[in-house]
């Protein structure tokens, strides 16, 4: 029995039988997107009031004032709703920050979900427009969902995942076989360690490798290089098992 991990990567299985990973976005970034959206709305509001003030001469003062009220209402409630229900699944602010809103199943939002999620914004924004409730809810849930997200069944994710810096891969090492069998997650962690090794300084690398000294049977620099050798062994073995031009759909099970 494993404990639930604290992870912004949310694995989901699709009907197509494949597992995809969604990167859930945290409150900091979403606050930035909100601030940008707020600015956009403010600018639109100012522009609308200028235009209506001018056209008020032709339309009549009261008609112009009425239209301004209507514009306030629409911007207040429907601005995020219509953008999120649209094709991009994101308000302009969210798009600028590389975010989008999707269902927890990973599929695009329906109009109803966008509607519910944004009506709840009023509750999330309390107390006094600080988004205190929304923040508390984000921090209390595994997928950073504010109350509106919980009610609508939605999450905010990174639209395009950030590009990983590609460190120079360490030179090929003589593969060292794994002493024991590892779970899929553990193997993945091992391979990721090798891939990212170039990002860290040597002492940091050893510090991380020391966490797995039970596996490598050594600590310090020796442990780190042995872990990488083991990761190399895993990759070589997995990839050698794949014969080119075979039916890919039926790869052998683990």
């Amino acid at each position: 029995m494993t404990t639930r991990k604290l992870d912004t990567l949310q694995a989901l299985e699709l009907a197509e039988g494949v597992e995809i990973r969604l990167r859930v976005a945290g409150p900091m970034l979403r606050a930035g997107a909100y601030a940008l959206d707020f600015g956009i709305r403010l600018v639109v509001m100012i522009a609308a009031s200028l235009v209506l003030a001018l056209s008020g001469i032709a339309l009549g003062d009261r008609v112009a004032r009425g239209m301004l009220l209507l514009a306030v209402f629409l911007l207040e409630w429907f601005y995020p709703m219509l953008f999120e229900a649209g094709k991009r699944g994101a308000t302009p602010g969210k798009r600028a920050f590389g975010l989008r809103v999707v269902q927890v199943t990973g599929s695009p939002l329906t109009f109803g979900q966008a509607f519910v999620r944004n009506l709840m914004r009023w509750v999330d924004g309390m107390p006094w427009f600080t988004y205190g409730f929304g923040l508390a809810s984000c921090l209390a849930t595994r997928r950073f969902q504010r109350l509106g997200d919980l009610a609508a069944g939605t999450v905010v994710i990174y639209d395009r995942p950030p590009v990983m810096p590609l460190p120079a891969t360490p030179p090929p090492i003589a593969p060292v076989p794994l002493p024991v069998g590892l779970t899929a997650d553990e193997t993945r962690a091992l391979v990721l360690f090798r891939e990212r090794a170039g990002l860290w300084s040597a002492p940091r690398r050893e510090e991380i490798a020391d966490q797995a000294s039970a596996l490598s049977g050594a600590s310090g620099a020796t442990g780190a290089s042995r872990l990488m050798a083991m990761a190399h062994w895993v990759q070589v073995r997995k990839q050698a098992a794949a014969i080119p031009n075979r039916n890919h759909a039926r790869s052998n099970n683990k």
């Binding site: 039988g17 494949v18 995809i20 891939e195 990839q239």
Partner: peptide, 21 residues
């Protein structure tokens, strides 16, 4: 989707799996 599963299974590395994902 099959390619992604294969890349994950064969440990082709994060760059490729992220891209396919």
């Amino acid at each position: 989707c099959v390619d992604l599963s294969l890349a994950e299974y064969r440990m082709y590395g994060e760059r490729l799996t992220e891209q396919l994902n």
